[in-house]
Computed example of a mutant assay.
Amino acid sequence: MPSISKKGTKMPESPIRKLVPYAEKAKKEGVEVIHLNIGQPDIKTPQIALDAVKNNTLSVLEYSNSEGSEAYRKKLASYYAKHDIHVTAQDILVTTGGSEALSFALGSIADSNDEIIIPEPFYANYNGFATAMGINVIPVVSRIDDNFALPPIEEFEKLVTPRTKGILICNPGNPTGYLYTREEIEKLSAIAKKHDIFLISDEVYREFTYDGKKHFSILQQPGMEEHGVVVDSVSKRYSMCGARIGCLVSKNKELLKTALKFAQARLSPPTYAQIASEAALETPQSYFEDVKKEYVSRRNLLIAELEKIEGIKIGYPQGAFYCIAELPISNSDHFAQWLLEEFRVDGETVMVAPAAGFYASKGLGKNQIRIAYVLEKDSLKRAVHILKEALKIYKDQ
């Protein structure tokens, strides 16, 4: 039998998607599964984006440029200017989702066995992209007891080696909802410049910050022209996950020139999706204000309901729409599967994301889950009730 690559064997399963077969089986049995496992908002996509595709007059669905439509990139630059991020269309490379932007960034800065430092827990696919490219993830642990705040800078300094090519953060954070302060961005930027490495910031949740807090981009930090790289996407901002349009933003010309070679190899980002994404940039600010109010309301309800469960510990989200909860169990993978296979309340169960897959350090996160509060409040309340009842009878593994 032909052998599978070592790289493929090492490729981690998605903690978010690996339980899908169990969920599908439960649904076929008539069980209603409440999905807390995936960041698919139920917020409506702006009508202006949908109409742009519906009403377009294309007669040939052509390739776009490998770097993306110039018209879209110019409008993106105007969007960033409104957020005090001053870039040009030439500083932007349109990608097939934020995932491809991240892949291009890693491929452009690091070779096999090079290292990327990432505060953990982190978006699980960071592990996947690094594995695919033979890059070693070097984790810096942030802890739920500190609400996942940036670890002391000394912890980063200890980990920098000649093979370190960059630091990668998600701001606001997936899976924690943590929002980096301006001072933390300044400290990380200082490390990047001191050691002449890149600072990559995944900023796809930029709009979703709460309690009066403001997002501060690494590209707002002075002196980061050569070291700063932003990964972005329309997926969460406009509830357009299926569009698969993102971008890579940097003033480092050599990095963008390199990333463009990766982009040329995949030809071009999807044309219809760029049309929708360009139109979405006309979405009024009131849309985001309404969405933020809804997410704050959902977050507050979720936290209040979770706090009623004995023995639980919760990270308090300041942005995005995720929460890490530490449960009084030892194996959240088993618990999550058990929920789907065996546990029901009035014909319903809940699907969560086991959190171990959001860590690189072995053994961490095994008693934690990630909850995405992207559902309306009644569903969230029912889901937490199911979790509470499940924990009463679950036999720990």
Rank of each mutant, 00 (worst) to 15 (best):
H35I: 07
H35Q: 00
H35K: 07
L36I: 10
L36A: 03
L36K: 06
L36N: 07
N37R: 01
N37Y: 05
N37L: 02
N37M: 06
I38V: 05
I38N: 11
G39H: 02
G39M: 03
Q40R: 10
Q40V: 15
Q40E: 15
P41F: 02
P41A: 06
P41L: 04
P41H: 01
P41C: 09
D42E: 14
D42G: 12
I43G: 04
I43Q: 09
K44S: 12
K44R: 12
K44F: 08
K44T: 04
K44V: 02
T45V: 12
P46K: 05
P46R: 06
P46M: 04
P46I: 02
P46G: 04
Q47C: 02
Q47I: 12
Q47K: 14
Q47H: 05
I48Q: 08
I48M: 05
I48W: 02
I48S: 14
A49M: 03
A49Q: 06
A49F: 02
L50A: 07
L50I: 14
L50G: 05
D51P: 00
D51V: 01
D51K: 12
A52I: 02
V53G: 05
N55G: 00
N55E: 15
N55A: 04
N55L: 11
N56H: 14
N56E: 15
N56P: 03
T57K: 12
T57W: 01
T57C: 03
T57D: 13
T57R: 10
L58M: 11
L58T: 09
L58Q: 07
L58I: 11
L58K: 08
L58N: 06
S59R: 03
S59H: 03
S59G: 01
V60L: 14
V60N: 10
V60Y: 13
L61A: 02
L61N: 05
E62N: 13
Y63M: 09
Y63H: 10
Y63P: 05
S64N: 10
N65H: 14
N65G: 01
N65L: 08
S66T: 09
S66D: 12
S66V: 01
E67H: 05
E67F: 07
E67D: 10
E67M: 07
G68P: 03
G68K: 14
G68V: 11
G68E: 06
G68L: 14
S69R: 15
E70K: 09
E70Y: 11
E70V: 11
E70S: 11
E70P: 00
